Simulated scan of single mutants.
Amino acid sequence: DAKIPEWEEEVGVGTAGFGVFFILFGILLYFDSVLLAFGNLLFLTGLSLIIGLRRTFSFFFQRHKLKGTSFFLGGVAIVLLRWPLLGMLLEAYGFFNLFKGFFPMAFGFLGNTFNIPFLSMLFQRLQGTSSMV
């Protein structure tokens, strides 16, 4: 594995951040298809800059993640074809399927980071609900 240059990772984080911003802005503007499509393209470009093309490809096309990948990338294609509501629903389902193994770890991190009584109890309970497999 080749080391990704630091500047490329920084550009990738910025690009992915702008992608998330455009996606959220597109949702706020009643599912504007141009903003959503632009956000999707920026997010995927930023992700591939952060972790590299080979790792991005191997993450999305693992055998057990093909269902989530097909829904996510199919949703991106549907958004590009100007069906934004249907495309975002497909993307959300695919995103959940792709990253469901990371949610317990993220909830555990949030529960330990924020020492708010009700929220930390909720995050710790959500952390134990799913396995990483």
Rank of each mutant, 00 (worst) to 15 (best):
G39Y: 11
V20M: 09
F59R: 01
E6G: 11
F103A: 06
F57V: 08
G39F: 08
L35F: 14
A106G: 01
N115R: 14
G14M: 05
G17L: 04
S120E: 12
G75Y: 15
F71T: 00
N112T: 04
L81V: 07
L73R: 11
G108C: 00
A16G: 04
P5C: 04
L66Q: 14
F96P: 01
D32H: 14
V34S: 10
F123Q: 03
G87W: 14
G101I: 04
M105L: 07
G111P: 08
A77V: 15
R54E: 13
E91M: 14
G74Q: 12
L89Y: 12
A37W: 12
G68M: 05
L80W: 15
I116W: 08
K65F: 12
L81G: 12
F25P: 01
V76A: 07
I50M: 07
F31R: 10
R82V: 13
L47H: 04
K3Q: 10
Y30L: 11
S33K: 13
G12L: 01
T15Q: 07
S130G: 02
I23F: 04
F61Y: 15
G14W: 05
G19P: 15
K67I: 14
T15P: 09
F103D: 02
K3D: 13
I116T: 05
L110T: 06
T56Q: 05
S70P: 06
L85W: 07
T113H: 08
A37I: 08
F118H: 03
E8L: 12
P104S: 02
P84K: 00
G46E: 06
F59Q: 02
L24R: 11
F72P: 03
P5I: 02
F99Y: 14
F22E: 01
R82W: 14
S33L: 00
F99D: 09
F96L: 09
G87I: 06
K100F: 12
L110G: 07
F99P: 15
P104N: 05
A37D: 13
V79H: 12
L41E: 12
E9F: 02
T15S: 10
I78E: 11
F95Q: 01
F95M: 00
P84G: 05
A77D: 09
L47K: 01
F25S: 02
P117T: 01
F43D: 01
Q127W: 01
N112C: 00
L42W: 09
I50Y: 11
L35Q: 06
P117C: 00
K67M: 08
G17N: 06
L85I: 14
F22R: 06
L81M: 13
A77P: 02
M121G: 00
L42Q: 13
V133F: 10
R125H: 06
G26T: 10
I51G: 08
V79M: 07
F59Y: 15
R63H: 13
L122S: 02
F60E: 07
T56I: 03
P84V: 04
V13W: 07
L89Q: 10
I51P: 03
F114T: 03
T15V: 15
L24V: 11
